[in-house]
Design a protein around this nucleic acid. Structure first.
Lengths: 335, 335
DNA sequence: CTGTTAGCGCCTTCAG
DNA sequence: CTGAAGGCGCTAACAG
């Protein structure tokens, strides 16, 4: 049925060992025999079996990435970065979705281990789970934006706190004094950090930190929309909103629009992430850019180069920057 | 180092065959021995090795999906659908990106074959390539939105032509007579079909089909933006635009905005796909909805249930529908 | 019900 | 440089 190394050995009149050496590149093989072998391989259409190859304990050439939800545009960009370096090194990428559910993650991790993947990139938050430690044990692991829970020896993340700070600083510079914040899920450290940065900037400017101006969303459009409506319902004055991510800003924009507020004329808006779409919104979204693709590349590189059981611990923090577009401007009107 | 079936056999005082049977569920095993085995498994922390399991010819429990670009929001939604059924059946999903490049696809397909994946879902267009047929030979394959090139025995797609028709019909019903079309890449059949549907509707209404009102984009925001600017530069009158996909509509919206046209007051706009974002744009985008998630589910189901070498051919076409939101309205102003 | 014995396809000593 | 032999971890006939 399927042609194996033995078939081509017979065809080329050599032993399987020689064929193996010729194909894997290990060990010297005579010029003439090598030619006969490659010829036979081509003619018989031999397809190596990686299962057999890695059964000996070698690498499988496959890594996995676990994301909360591939449908959120942040994650595809990240996955693309991971994929890019995986491909460069001829690795395949397994995609898993956790839905931020720890037990799902544990189940997937177990499955991945049976498959003997070479390593895992774990993205985003996960509620602590007793079984998680065991499922992760001994598995080369790089975390992205996830510094809670289990201790990870290799990690990559953006500087969310500083991002929150520069977003709000920008708004302050524009003259805004009452700045609302649509935060992410309170349990996620990235949301906490962005909020902390926001409040830090407020405090540094001597502005009042009003808890009524902070609403938590879910990092989705719907969450941003709802958050803004609650904010509006509170009838507290504010002239600017800093949204914890761009998707929430999309929802906020919509809620503001429906309520009759113009952005940026009546209310200024700043997002976070700089997903590809941000530049195409109307108005184009001023936002804090994280190098999403690069985060992915770093994570994969760390995994493939450094994340070996004995390797030295390593943590990377990438810088963020403000991208000024059209959704934030000097204060004029105000609610 | 790693604990194998043999270790637990020794520990439980039985043979490896019995352990194998106990774990795989094939063949009867005594109650008492089974208990000893499961106990040993738990205590020793045994992790089955799927490589060894599938080496002798069984399925690997892994399928792959090849998409042009995971960064385009259409694909993550599709992948999520595929993933959902893959998970239900305890399959893992390998993600590959082709960039619509046939030689990349061929390389990836070869790699997937070495890995002995159980099947592949191929999404989107691919230039014909001589090596493609060989790379695909004998591999269970389901195509999505891809009816050109190699003959596929299993496929899933939406009814793009009918989608193009209802989009334009809607605009006609609203009184528009000069309707522009931002098409997708001319080489892609889905783009051709949507365009054909559009022209069909125009003809059926006795409206003039003006080639100067059709511009090709690339299914991205930038493409839609550029397309609309070329359209504007042509200075042909039009009061509505049908964009071949939602992302292009985002770009078109922006170009229109910059040129001083209000949507839908000055120009009506209809998109295609109904990606999640569509409902959150301002104005909320009227669009042709394809059941993206369902397309993914069907594709995976077809692959896992029917796409066996001997199985009967099967092609599914899913219905599309118009989602009326706020970007299209009765004709008033006009360019 | 359970043990023995072959492999699955490939790589890797160890001889020659 | 090349061949023979053993084994990776597991499953699948066969026997008992």
């Amino acid at each position: 049925m399927t042609v194996t190394i033995r078939d081509i050995a017979a065809d080329a009149g050599v032993s399987v060992a020689t064929v193996s050496r010729a194909l894997s590149g290990n060990g010297r093989v005579g010029e003439a025999t090598r030619a006969r072998i490659t010829e036979a391989v081509a003619r018989l259409g031999y397809q190596p079996n990686d299962l057999a190859r890695s059964l000996h304990g070698g690498a499988t050439g496959t890594i996995a990435v676990l994301v909360p939800d591939i449908t959120n545009p942040f994650f595809p960009e990240l996955v693309a970065g991971i994929q890019a370096v995986a491909n460069e090194r001829e690795n395949l990428l397994l995609l898993c979705q956790t839905g931020e559910d720890a037990s799902t993650a544990v189940r997937e991790l177990r499955h991945l281990r049976r498959k003997r993947v070479d390593g895992v990139v774990l993205v985003g938050g996960l509620a602590p789970d007793d079984a998680l430690g065991g499922a992760l044990a001994g598995m080369p692991l790089v975390t992205v934006d996830r510094d809670t829970g289990l201790p990870a020896r290799w990690s990559v993340r953006a500087d969310h706190r500083s991002g929150g700070r520069i977003a709000t600083e920008h708004l302050v510079e524009l003259g805004h004094e009452r700045i609302a914040h649509v935060a992410g899920p309170a349990r996620l450290s990235v949301a906490q950090e962005r909020l902390a940065g926001h409040q830090e900037a407020l405090a540094a400017s001597g502005l009042e930190v009003d808890d009524a101006l902070v609403v938590h969303g879910d990092f989705g459009e719907a969450g941003g929309y709802d958050a803004l409506r609650t904010l509006l319902r509170r009838r507290r004055e504010f002239s600017a909103v800093f949204c914890s991510n761009d998707l929430a800003a999309v929802g906020a924009l919509r809620a503001l629009d429906e309520a009759g507020f113009r952005v940026p004329d009546d209310v200024s808006l700043v997002g976070f992430d700089d997903i590809h779409l941000a530049g195409y919104l109307r108005p184009a979204l001023t936002t804090v850019r994280q190098p999403i693709h690069e985060l992915g590349r770093r994570a994969a590189t760390l995994l493939l180069e450094h994340a070996v059981p004995g390797g030295a611990e390593r943590h990377e923090v990438l810088e963020v920057s403000l991208v000024r577009r059209d959704s934030a401007r000097s204060v004029r009107g105000r609610r």
